[in-house]
Nucleic acid binder design. Structure first.
Lengths: 181, 181
DNA sequence: ACCTGAACACCGTTCAAGT
DNA sequence: ACCTGAACACCGTTCAAGT
């Protein structure tokens, strides 16, 4: 036995971390394993499936037993931002699964189905835009030939993320009060 | 004068509507204009810029003088969903512009910066997942060789969109009350 | 079971040259 | 100003064949 499916996923995540989603081609992943591109199709039916397996692996660290919806969203965002382009990979795959992902189910237990969907979509959107901005900032820093400002945009985006969660949770709470009156 | 930049954008939107984002390559857009691929680079510096111009055109119908944040979000979502893969095109481009788009500025006037960001990210995320699900449903319908159910998932997604907006606007209102007390 | 080698039908972008 | 033609360095996927 030479390579296993897990080896392929691990290699793909190494390429993603090192070169980004744009460069994470089947051919590059194959090269990472010192194997011909066609060999990958023994482990995975196509690129889309490989991306789904990568998303699962990126989200493996998110504990589903949290009892605080905010903590779950923060963990989800953290996992997505922990790998280069992780937000894009996860958001694309999870958008496809909306209504059937484990994280959404857990969130729905805590805040109801509509609250879960709102929190999830907000979290995906915010993580994607955080990552887009970080890349733009890095790129700009390279062009300007100066060091990236250590505590500039990044901290702002973390703060606005929390604000958004506050607003949504506040809306859910207000709704609950209205229902019970 | 043979083709103008506007001709290129219009051709790209025709290809997008007919074949989707995946198939909207520089080469296909060139073919749509009966021109060599290299000719496009006279009108546009690269594919990314062309996508940005397409996003602007998709959003041209969104009136910025609305005084109701809900109406603005509904119009935004409607514009994105009016073209095949429009949500992906707009979300990608606008995420890059977060903090500087005309729609976000108008929304910020109505509900403040944090509210604007929350509403926008939610709207992008929901539109993207609506479109993903519609495509999956179409694909499934083709495989199952049956007609698409006319009022199934689509109406549900419209309803959940409104719910999410309600939750966010409710949260903003609750916050405003807390501040003025 | 896992992989090679070769092929097919594509990409975005550049650049000298034409009109 | 706008376009052609040719090239460069890539893609995802299939498939017969090898071990």
């Amino acid at each position: 036995m030479r390579n296993t499916r897990a080896d392929v996923v691990a290699a793909a995540l190494r390429v993603l971390a090192a070169q980004g989603l744009e460069s994470c081609s089947m051919r590059r992943v194959a090269a990472e394993l010192d194997v011909q591109p066609s060999a990958l199709y023994h482990h995975v039916p196509n690129k889309q499936s490989l991306l789904a397996l990568m998303a699962d692996e990126i989200l493996r660290s998110v504990r589903l037993d949290a009892s605080d919806p905010r903590a779950l969203c923060v963990a989800l965002r953290g996992a997505m931002l922990s790998v280069r382009d992780g937000a894009d990979v996860v958001a694309t795959v999870e958008a496809f699964r909306l209504g059937s992902s484990a994280i959404e189910r857990r969130l729905a237990e805590l805040v109801g189905g509509e609250g879960a969907q709102t929190l999830l979509l907000y979290t995906f959107g915010h993580a994607q835009s955080t990552q887009t901005h970080r890349q733009a900032a890095e790129f700009g820093a390279l062009l300007a030939e100066e060091l990236p400002q250590e505590a500039g945009d990044g901290r702002d985006l973390d703060a606005t993320f929390d604000s958004g969660i506050d607003i949504i949770l506040g809306g859910l709470a207000a709704r609950e009060i209205a229902r019970t009156n």
